[in-house]
Design a protein around this nucleic acid. Structure first.
Lengths: 212, 212
DNA sequence: CGACGGATGTATCGGTCTGATACATCGCAC
DNA sequence: GTGCGATGTATCAGACCGATACATCCGTCG
């Protein structure tokens, strides 16, 4: 997972470890806490040994900006093999792709996938969340007696979060299917009317209508 | 974390590993995926070696229910030291107590803490989520240009989730402060009117009014 | 009847990630 | 000029995951 994230970030710009972590934290802050240096630096070393990234000996026109002497920062750049590797990792969707952390990383680089791949991942994620949701519903209906008030409240909050995410995913999937770029300002569940030919049959209003 | 969760579950009933994992998944399904056997069984061994749990040689009145022969299930029970250990772990709130997984486990056993401890943990969690929320807000206002539409959507969804959780925590905190048990049926953000003396000043309607 | 799959049950292993820690430099404020 | 926070690289012990192995029990289907 970290590997994919690092390659993805270096795809945009060359960076050193410290900055990588900051960008990582910012980019994935929504879905996972943050990757720590304890995994970042070993990963960088591994990627370098594999030839996916290489030390970037600094642009001559930017002579080591603030840092000057000694063992300063180490800037990494993506190699051609690295780009290939990134594309492979991003496209091949293993089961962990739909887990919280994995999904966040994939989603962050969605613009590098085509529509079909995006749809596949979104639907896989939705399936995963729906399973979690069903589990919670079952717990809430079947074992109300066996759990104390706090546990129940926890289940309820989890269920609510699942339902929200499924709705979010449904909007994204509808967006993709209508060929439209991701939400312009879908803050309150409001989708702005876009000027577009009514191509297919539009899954209507029901946010839960899709198989099952 | 797993240690605390296992001790907490065995506090209620003696169980074997397989069932422990099922209960674990159910109880914490809302906040974390699940603990795997790869960490559960080593933890059980460690807890047993430490004397916090012990093999329960089966009730004589229930002579190994379905399983009969060979090396069947191993039922564990909590020892006196285990109960102490559980109380310690549950009460001492380290920084990881406010992380997703840690908070879920603590919350699940809230009924074994007193009101003051519950409030401390809820407020700590709220602080953590507020920090995450502020980070997301900053990203969304400051670096809109630098991120593509999908990354922005990810941030927005994360921000929404944070805001919801803060609101949830505020309700729980208000509940605790008014000495009332956790929500009876607070499904849609609706708090049923409860027959109770208007003890303190009731923080009114604003879900975000609390310091800051 | 036997064969097969799925739930139950215990257990280990390699690998990933975390949290703590160490250490060194830079720039700034007091 | 001295401390202090941000920048920067790096390692280590330990927690946890995913896969795998293996064995039993039970129901179903040919």
């Amino acid at each position: 997972m970290l590997e994919l994230a690092v390659l993805g970030l270096l795809h945009e710009t060359s960076m050193h470890g410290y900055e990588l972590r900051k960008r990582l934290t910012q980019l994935l802050g929504a879905f996972r806490a943050a990757f720590s240096y304890g995994s970042l630096y070993p990963t960088l070393k591994r990627l370098k040994d594999s030839g996916y990234i290489a030390e970037d000996a600094g642009d001559p026109n930017e002579p080591v900006p603030p840092l000057t002497g000694k063992r300063g920062r180490i800037v990494y750049k993506l190699t051609a093999e690295g780009k290939e590797r990134f594309a492979d990792l991003l496209a091949q969707a293993g089961p962990e792709t739909y887990e919280d952390s994995g999904f966040g990383v994939h989603f962050a680089f969605f613009s590098r996938l085509d529509q079909a791949q995006r749809l596949r991942i979104l639907e896989g994620r939705r399936r995963r969340i729906e399973e979690r949701r069903e589990g919670l519903r079952e717990t809430l209906t079947r074992s109300v007696e066996r759990l104390d008030a706090y546990s129940l409240e926890l289940q309820r909050h989890g269920l609510d979060a699942c339902e929200r995410e499924v709705r979010w995913l449904n909007e994204l999937i509808a967006s993709e299917q209508s060929g439209r770029p991701p939400s312009v300002t879908t803050v309150g569940g409001f989708v702005p009317p876009e000027p577009q030919a009514p191509s297919v049959h539009e899954p209507s209003e029901d946010p839960d209508a899709h198989r099952e």
